Simulated assay, not measured.
Amino acid sequence: MSTTQDYEVQEFRPEPPPPWWDRLEQRLRQHAPTALRVSIGLVFVWFGLLKAIGQSPVADLVHATLPFLSQGLLMPVLGGVEVVLGVALVIGRPRRVTLVAVGAHLAGTFLVFVNAPALSWSDGNPLLLTANGEFVLKNVVLICAVLMLLGHRRTVRK
């Protein structure tokens, strides 16, 4: 003979986060996009200056990727463009145009996998990245950061 017992079903409700966590999240939502934009801008300025003054460690990689462009002109021009984009990111103006240009520039770095694959992976295997390949592949994260910034609504202070 089976007996049935009535069980009271209780709905699981997680505890709300402590108030300090809510305040921290609010501050992060408010300031993290600006910090991300400025940090990417500073990296662009830094890398651009290295290219412009002829001290970039990726000069050979860039030349191998874009062999059809004048080597004497490529690095200073590319460096100048990167400095301009970086300054625009730091300043935050013009926001959308700059972010689109930065995203396009970062996407262009993937040309190395097409134009100079021997510098990107070992033994012709795309799963075995070289240091150059890793350097370029990390731009996926930067492109996603740019996309996040493009999709983020700025809050207007009243």
Results as ranks from 00 to 15, higher is better:
residue 107 A to E: 02
residue 37 R to A: 11
residue 73 L to Y: 06
residue 13 R to Y: 04
residue 8 E to A: 14
residue 93 R to N: 07
residue 81 V to Q: 00
residue 113 F to R: 08
residue 106 L to C: 09
residue 49 L to Y: 15
residue 2 S to I: 13
residue 71 Q to L: 00
residue 123 D to I: 01
residue 103 G to Y: 06
residue 121 W to F: 15
residue 94 P to F: 06
residue 90 V to F: 03
residue 80 G to T: 07
residue 109 T to Y: 08
residue 108 G to E: 12
residue 81 V to F: 09
residue 3 T to C: 07
residue 57 P to W: 00
residue 94 P to S: 07
residue 51 K to M: 14
residue 70 S to V: 00
residue 36 L to C: 11
residue 17 P to F: 13
residue 136 V to F: 02
residue 68 F to R: 02
residue 17 P to I: 11
residue 116 A to N: 08
residue 91 I to F: 03
residue 87 V to M: 11
residue 147 L to D: 01
residue 86 G to C: 12
residue 51 K to Y: 05
residue 134 E to T: 08
residue 142 L to W: 08
residue 95 R to D: 06
residue 8 E to C: 05
residue 153 R to H: 14
residue 125 N to L: 06
residue 121 W to A: 12
residue 68 F to V: 07
residue 121 W to Q: 06
residue 133 G to M: 10
residue 7 Y to E: 11
residue 38 V to S: 12
residue 134 E to I: 06
residue 136 V to M: 02
residue 39 S to W: 02
residue 146 V to E: 03
residue 56 S to A: 14
residue 92 G to Q: 08
residue 110 F to Q: 08
residue 150 L to S: 11
residue 128 L to I: 00
residue 3 T to H: 15
residue 53 I to A: 07
residue 136 V to R: 01
residue 102 V to L: 10
residue 20 W to S: 13
residue 97 V to G: 05
residue 79 G to H: 05
residue 59 A to H: 01
residue 119 L to S: 14
residue 112 V to F: 04
residue 107 A to M: 13
residue 96 R to P: 07
residue 122 S to C: 01
residue 51 K to D: 12
residue 77 V to E: 03
residue 2 S to F: 15
residue 40 I to L: 15
residue 95 R to A: 11
residue 85 L to Y: 06
residue 88 A to V: 00
residue 41 G to T: 06
residue 108 G to W: 09
residue 102 V to W: 08
residue 133 G to N: 10
residue 6 D to A: 15
residue 71 Q to C: 00
residue 18 P to D: 12
residue 109 T to V: 07
residue 4 T to C: 04
residue 75 M to G: 02
residue 137 L to K: 01
residue 10 Q to E: 11
residue 30 Q to Y: 08
residue 110 F to L: 10
residue 54 G to S: 08
residue 38 V to W: 01
residue 36 L to H: 05
residue 18 P to L: 14
residue 99 L to T: 04
residue 125 N to K: 04
residue 31 H to D: 04
residue 39 S to T: 15
residue 2 S to A: 13
residue 104 A to D: 05
residue 73 L to C: 03
residue 134 E to P: 00
residue 21 W to N: 03
residue 17 P to V: 13
residue 124 G to W: 05
residue 107 A to P: 08
residue 77 V to G: 05
residue 109 T to K: 04
residue 91 I to M: 10
residue 71 Q to D: 07
residue 35 A to G: 13
residue 30 Q to H: 12
residue 4 T to P: 04
residue 23 R to V: 05
residue 117 P to H: 10
residue 44 F to V: 04
residue 93 R to D: 05
residue 95 R to Q: 10
residue 39 S to H: 02
residue 38 V to H: 06
residue 62 V to D: 07
residue 79 G to Y: 03
residue 104 A to E: 10
residue 13 R to P: 01
residue 93 R to M: 04
residue 130 T to E: 10
residue 90 V to E: 10
residue 119 L to K: 13
residue 27 R to F: 13
residue 50 L to T: 12
residue 149 L to F: 04
residue 22 D to E: 12
residue 14 P to T: 07
residue 83 V to S: 09
residue 15 E to P: 06
residue 125 N to E: 13
residue 70 S to W: 00
residue 146 V to C: 15
residue 6 D to I: 15
residue 44 F to A: 13
residue 44 F to K: 04
residue 69 L to R: 01
residue 89 L to Q: 12
residue 49 L to E: 03
residue 120 S to N: 10
residue 73 L to R: 08
residue 57 P to G: 08
residue 24 L to T: 14
residue 50 L to V: 03
residue 150 L to A: 09
residue 55 Q to A: 15
residue 143 I to G: 07
residue 103 G to L: 14
residue 54 G to F: 05
residue 154 R to P: 00
residue 141 V to L: 14
